[in-house]
Structures are given as C-alpha cells and as structure tokens.
Design a protein around this nucleic acid. Sequence first.
DNA 1: ACCCAGGCATTGG
DNA 2: CCAATGCATGGG
Length: 309
Amino acid sequence: MTPTDPAHFTLKPQPPYDFAANANFVTHYKGQEGADTFDGEILTRVLDLGTNVAKVDITSNGSTDDPALNITLSGQPIPAEIDTATRLVDRVVGARGNPQPFYDLVAEIPQLALLPETFHGLHLTQATSLFETITWAVLGQQISANVAASLRRKITEAYGRSGEIDGHPYALFPRPEDLASADIDDLRALGLSQRKAEYTLGLRDEFGSGRITEARLAAMDDEAVETELLKLRGIGPWTAHWLLIRGLGREDALPIGDVALQKTLGELVTGELFTPKELVDYAEQFRPYRSYLTIYLFALIRARRVGAV
DNA sequence: ACCCAGGCATTGG
DNA sequence: CCAATGCATGGG
C-alpha cells in the first residue's frame, strides 16, 4: 500500500443549513451512532466505496446562510472512488434539500415553534446503504431505540467488515454478501426474535440477489416504492416510510403507527398522545413536506433522550 | 416482578 | 374486515 494520501474537497449544502444540527441528528446527540462519530466539530465516518473503504472527516467552514463543508478523505481510495465518496458524503450530511418550506408551514402553529427554533438548518440526512437502512428499521420495529442499537451493534460485530484507517478503528454494517453464511439460529443467538431473524435473511436475499436495487426504487414515485417494499416480508407502512425518508431522501413520507411520533406530536399539540389516525390527519397540513415534520420530531425525541433539550 | 419500546404477520371472531 | 396476540431485550 502507498502511504495515505488524503483527498480534500469542499461541499456547499443548500441553505439554510447547520452542520452541527445535522451531525447531532445522525449521531443521536450522543456523539456516536452506528458508523458515525461527532465530537462537536468533526463528523467522522468510514465509507464503503465498493472496492475499498475510506475514512472521511467533515467540518464546517461557513454559516447557516452560506454553508460550506471541508471534506478530508483518507485510506486508499482509487481516483474513480473519489466520485463515489463525494456522492455518499453529500447524502450523509444532507447537503441537498431545503427545510424552508416546512418552516413556512410551521410558522402558523405556535405549539410547534420550538422545532424550527431548536433544530434550525437540519436537513434530511440520508443513510449510505438501502440494505443497511431497511435492516436497521426491521431490527428496530416495536423495541426501544436502545435495544435496536444493541442488536445493530451485535450484528455489525459478528458479520461486518472491520479494520483501522490512520489509527481509527471502524466496523461497517454487513452487506448482504457478508451475511451469506448466517442462518436463523445464528441471528437468534445474537438476540433477534425468530421473526426478525427470518425477515433479516429474507432482506439479505432480496438485496443480495439484486431483485431490489436502489437504482430501481429511485426511479419510482413514493407510492410505487411503498407498494414494492410492502411486498417484502417484515416490511409494513412504518418501515416503508422510514426507508423513503432515510434511504431515498423523499420529502413527504410519514412513518404511520410510530408511537414515539404519536406521543411527541400529540403532547406538543394537545397535551395528549395522538392515535395513529390523529397523527395522519394532523400531518396532512404539512404535505408535501411531511418528512421534515418526521425528522424534526425525531430530532426532539433524540435530543430529549440524552437531556440535550 | 412487571411494563413498555421509533411494528409486523398471523390468527380468530 | 377489524381486534387480539406473540415476539426479544434493556431500561424504567
């Protein structure tokens, strides 16, 4: 291997954009979640570039109204992979999109004013892999976020690739092929239920065989994507909508049936837990930007969980 | 010892 | 067609 030769570049997100708001969201206000770590200044993450992996360090070099990000890539990316890295970083930090139309809708609703105030400049940050996002969502169904994180950590340790770049240890969530040898009992031994083990292996086969690809889903409208995903065992409305937001960056999805959203939005608006129907009905006024409502509520939930708000 | 968590498929009326 | 039920584990 040649000595590490970092590549540097700049990224200009769409304003209004606040780097810390986005970095805190992806790390759940804990400084670390999954592959991402954020120390308050540098967001660090290891990316799967296809042939190689590379570490990326991201810092802010701008303001909310004129945002700029400094990107430093290290590891052994070949030139052709720099483009891939750029595209992935763009997704991870939520460079595209614009929350302003959502702010304009919220401006009419005093009970929700704290959302744009507290998280001003938060965008729709995307995961780098659809398989990871959908598997993570299945693991997280019904159970608390902490339990889901624990399951995710175990499956990463057991099956993901790991290593070190510039002294920085990393562990990547497994790709479908990394799970090739896994069977139901292996996954149950990690703490998954029988059902979740079955769903996970089913998704491994669907994504691993190429029957489902990001390119195919990306070409469909929201409704077609949902229809396609609902055919998969283990995928219901909640998971399909979460994948629309986190996996595909769509702006108008709402994870129906999410008890945390029902509780948090209900408490803000009426002081009481919303039913699933009340959540859906109330969210109507935010079309076609319901993903922002979802994300800003999750930001509040995550920040409150660690006492940051 | 409970009960609930950022759901879902299956079953029984 | 709607309501009820089991699921795994970690934190209240």
